[in-house]
Write a protein that binds this DNA or RNA. Sequence first.
DNA 1: TGGACCATGTAAGTAGTTACATGATTCG
DNA 2: CGAATCATGTAACTACTTACATGGTCCA
Lengths: 172, 172
Amino acid sequence: MDVKTIILGFLSEGEMSGYDIKQAFSNSIGFFYDASFGAIYPALRKLEEEGLVTKQEIIQSGKPNKILYQITDSGKDLFYQEMASPIVPPILRSDMLVKIFFAGNRTVEEREELFANGLQMQKKLLENTKKAFAKMADSLDPYQTFCWKYTMNHLEMTIKFIEDQAPHLLKQ
Amino acid sequence: MDVKTIILGFLSEGEMSGYDIKQAFSNSIGFFYDASFGAIYPALRKLEEEGLVTKQEIIQSGKPNKILYQITDSGKDLFYQEMASPIVPPILRSDMLVKIFFAGNRTVEEREELFANGLQMQKKLLENTKKAFAKMADSLDPYQTFCWKYTMNHLEMTIKFIEDQAPHLLKQ
DNA sequence: TGGACCATGTAAGTAGTTACATGATTCG
DNA sequence: CGAATCATGTAACTACTTACATGGTCCA
């Protein structure tokens, strides 16, 4: 699953601008697949070249003009195909876990700080996710709600795991 | 945390070849940070250019010769600094969660298959992780063991979450 | 009045992946 | 006898991030 395919997914639910799509990434699926403007705009250009989306410029007053993108039938076909392809394993890059992995040679104070920082980051992430979910919950379908709950569950379990295990490790 | 820094981390514990380093990625931290040969060999070349590692060719009979890399004092300094830098949030790319997020428009059969596939993948991942852990457990320090247990805990929680929630979603 | 929001886009750089090239040995 | 292991490396490509460029509106 790449950025182009995910954009087709968003456009399946209605026309959107590049800016709208960035909002959708950040506010909806950012936890399990994020993308920057620098990935989204070039992806939209390629999708248009391939005939998977069409565009329409909207003249606005008081705001910059915007370009709305619509998915085409071949775009829908491709998205449908991608959705039916086998699930591939997740890719994770966790700075926290790498730092813990190599913590064996560090001082007790450094380890304490490491766990405190990790815990703080996870708690901040959970707090932000809960706030964002509260704002969106009404507009979500059951599958989208599942993803949000998965994220919150994951963060809660991570916090619990660190709080349970870290004292043991630091006592030794 | 990038591939170069993680290689310095491995070399802190003793000299290794590029091949050894690939093994260490795959067998130890692959779940939360993986890297390919095509990332490792160029990273080693850059580390040598920067004076952070030195190398030594070992002539072997019956096997291809290998090049062992050693970390230098400035390599150790840099690694130490990186380890003390603030933890940045994890980056995740989950094909499964994206597919679930967009499952709202699919048929009941397609959704059932999606959850079945997702569950199967997570179970396979857990099984592989448990087997690999059983082989390594003796040689791990408490911080490395923490990372393995974190991984297994995460996979178990994910499986439990899907098994609990999916029947609800599919009944509707 | 300063920051957040709306809005698009490019250039330069980073950081990889995948596939290819090579080839002996060892194990089941 | 075929697959896995050991072992290094490059070329072509993919896919992205970060920073820059621009500028009006709205709200506290």
